[in-house]
Amino acid sequence: MAEPVRVALFVTCLVDLFRPTVGFAAIKLLEDAGCTVTVPTAQTCCGQPAYNSGDREDAKAIARQVVAAFADFDYVVVPSGSCGGMIKAHYPLLLAEEPAVADDAKALAARTFELISFLVDVLKRPDIAARYDGVATYHDACSGLRELGIKDQPRHLLAQVSGLTLKEMTTPEVCCGFGGTFCVKYPEISDKMVTDKAVDIAATGADTLLCGDMGCLLNMAGKLARLGSGIRVRHVAEVLAGMTDDVAPIGHVAPDKA
C-alpha cells in the first residue's frame, strides 16, 4: 500500500471560533480519503484582516508564521476558499521581497488547497457516502471561485449525496456582501447585497443553503435569520461528511437543546 498522504489542516480562525464541526468534517473527509491529518498548533489566522486593511507588516509577520508552521507536510488543506486563496495566491506576492522566506512561501502556495478542490482535483477519489434529505442551493464564495477556480467541484460531490437535490440561484456567483471588514465598515451596502442574496436564495425554493466559506455563511445565515427565514445554513463539508446530525444549522440550536 502506498504511503498515506500527510495533510496539515489549516483550520481558519472563523471555523476555530464559530464552527469546530467544519474542522472535524474536514478531517473526516480527508481521513476517509486515506490521508493522515495533523493540526499544527502554531496557527491563528491567515492574516487577511491585516492584509486587506493595508497593514502589510502584520500581514507579513502572520504569513511568515504560517509558512513556518506548515512547512513539513505533503499538503495543507483549508476549509475555506478565502483563506486558501490568501495562502495560495497572495503569500507569494506578499513575501516576494523577503529572500529568507520567498521560496518557502511559493512552495507552501503550491502545496496548499481548499478542502473541496483538494478532494476532487488532487485526491481524485471523491466517494461520498453521506445522506442529506433536502433541497439545497450552493453559493459560490468569491475567492474560491475567482482565485482558485472552485465551481464544479462542490457540485460534483454534492451530486453523490443521497437524498439531496441541488437547485441553482439566478446569480450564485454574485458576492454576498461579507467581504471581511467590509461588512462592518460599509454595513448599509453590505446589507443591500446580502438582502439581494437572500431574495435569490429564497427564490430557489431550497430549504438549505450551502457554501464553503465561514465568513459568507455567517453573513447569509445572519441575514436569513433576521428576515425570519427558516432556511438551514451549513458549510458544505458538514453535509459531505455526513455530520449534519452532530450540530444544528448555523445560527440555530438543536431541537433537544432549545
Binding site: V15, L17, F18, P20, F24, V184, V194, R226, G251
Partner: peptide, 16 residues
C-alpha cells in the same frame, strides 16, 4: 455594524 442589519450566529461552544 453587524447586528443592526443581521443576526450574529453564536459559536458552537468550545473552539476547534
Amino acid at each position: 455594524g453587524w447586528t443592526d442589519m443581521r443576526d450574529m450566529p453564536a459559536p458552537e461552544g468550545k473552539s476547534f
